[in-house]
């Protein structure tokens, strides 16, 4: 059997203030196979976002193991994590997180710049992905000139332009109306069908139904897993 893309075991994360310590992840273990579409659900404060940040190597765990594609990354320093991240992982956020000073084209181009792709190749790949997301006609617009749905499509374009193996989506439809939300979910499903692994944090049961498997968290622990049919 193929090794899972992600294997975490006994993962712990604490938040400390001067006097209080809060447990965000409590000896959490889980696996995600290559090509899976996983939804993570749970009430506010259950540790969903913390988990996503650790999976995305934006944050490091306090204890436990995180094996990504057979590499133990839990103790990686920031630089190593950044290198691994930029080649393998794409992010989609609830609030889109586009850079206001850059155009649609330039926002999507950004990851390619940081991975050192040549200029001519960048143009080709950005145009390809903008075409796929059907926002080619908006390429020279700035984010604030776009609707929410369009902005999220740009954000998804940016997440996939580097052809990552994994996309992490943090409530990708949270700021969208239902019609735009559905469009975004369709896009993610398409990407998953083309082989990209997707892990999505969501509050919406409706969105979760697009996934193969739902992991429910409470107080930093897995409380239930539903396999979707």
């Amino acid at each position: 059997m193929e090794a899972p893309m992600i294997k975490i075991s006994n993962l712990e994360k604490f938040y400390r203030t001067e006097e209080v310590e809060t447990i965000a992840l409590n000896k959490l273990s889980m696996e995600v196979a290559t090509g899976e579409f996983v939804a993570i659900m749970g009430p506010s404060g259950c540790g969903k976002s913390t988990l996503l940040n650790i999976l995305g190597m934006l944050d490091d765990p306090d204890a436990g193991s995180y094996i990504f594609n057979d590499i133990e990354v839990a103790r990686f320093n920031e630089r190593k994590r950044a290198d691994l991240r930029k080649h393998n992982i794409g992010f989609v956020f609830q609030s889109f997180n586009l850079i206001d000073e850059l155009t649609v084209f330039e926002n999507v181009e950004l990851p390619l710049i940081y991975t050192g792709v040549a200029a001519s190749e960048r143009v080709k790949r950005v145009e390809e992905v903008l075409d796929k997301m059907q926002i080619m006609h908006r390429r020279n617009h700035y984010p604030q000139q776009l609707s929410g749905g369009q902005q999220q499509r740009v954000a998804i374009a940016r997440a996939v332009v580097n052809k990552p193996k994994l996309i992490l989506a943090d409530e990708p439809t949270g700021n969208l109306d239902s019609s735009n939300g559905n469009d975004v979910m369709e896009l993610l499903t398409d990407l998953n069908e083309q082989g990209t692994t997707i892990i999505m944090v969501t509050h919406s049961e409706h969105d979760a139904r697009y996934s193969h498997r739902i992991i429910r968290l409470l107080d930093g622990q897995t409380v239930m897993e539903n396999i979707m049919v």
Binding site: E78, A82, R85, K86, L98, I99, Y114
Partner: peptide
Amino acid sequence: SREVGIRKVVGARRFA
């Protein structure tokens, strides 16, 4: 700060 965050997420190193 948000811009810095985004750049880091999409792959920028601190030096960049």
